[in-house]
Amino acid sequence: MAAPAAKQEGFYDCRDAWARTIEELAENDPRIVAVVNDSVGSSKLGGFQKRFPDRLVNVGIAEQNMVGVGAGLANGGRIPFVSAASCFLTGRALEQVKADIAYAGFNVKLVGQSSGVAYGELGPTHHSIEDFAWLRPLSNIKVVVPADSWETAEAIKWAAAYEGPVYIRLSRMPVPDLVVENRKFQPGKAELVRKGDDVTIIACGTMVHLAVQAAVELEAEGISARILNMATISPLDEAAISAAASETGAIVTIEEANIHGGLGGAVAEHTSANLPVPIERMGFPGFVPTGSVEWLFDHFGLTATGIARSARKAIGRKRG
């Protein structure tokens, strides 16, 4: 497999961690199989295909069939990882995800590749920014959004061992590994990346490392920002959100997703009913214009500077 074209030193494409991990797991567990929709290359499953040709099911460009086949493979005792561009996996096959995977409760792992706006200039048909809102109500699917290569590998290992439906949302955007002491992947738990008292920035996926940069910027102004890596969107770590609301009094959410119904929506649902505090939700308001990923992030303020600005705004909205 070709080395990833990392854009900056120390930045890694999480799909490489996914591919390495699934091959390792498959080596030790013959039940693990991959299901794709002509997406071997974009899922970086070329190595898997070489090593386990009989355990890769390529149904062709047919997402409804792909997800249904995943459910059937689970019925037949396999552990299928259904891997495809997340826009098509969740959008095109949404009813199959609902009925065949979530409602039926099959032990299927859905792996959404190149999520968010990773396809940049290809436009909203190829963006996957609605997936959180679509999948969150499917209550028994765990929705996991790793923030870096380490967390990707840990999430894949956990998903293989866990009995039940999981959606793991990966990007193709290179990100740095987070620096957190004694890291341990805990599904359903927020990861405290940085302590802080004035505001909490709750981020997931590609946005977490930007939130850390923002916290450094804010620290220079004497603002102490707590950073939570909310790698599990569903079920939500409500205790961590309650603590953030009561201890810091203001929240910024940031996700590479639509701000309606995703991480920000979930946090707002919880706090508004329990501990209302000012919230600034960052992400995309709807379909986005043509532009590269970098341009889109910059245009919608998904940068360290933009996050710091939202943090100041949230703090300014605190009462009294």
């Binding site: 997800v67 086949v69 059937g72 493979l73 019925n75 009813e95 009925a99 065949d100 409602y103």
Partner: peptide, 22 residues
């Protein structure tokens, strides 16, 4: 498997058959 919305059974059954073949 859970059915109801039409057009779901054949893909799921196909997956079961592929698992058997595998």
């Amino acid at each position: 498997t859970n059915t109801g919305p039409l057009g779901h059974g054949l893909p799921v059954a196909l997956g079961i058959a592929i698992a058997g073949q595998m």
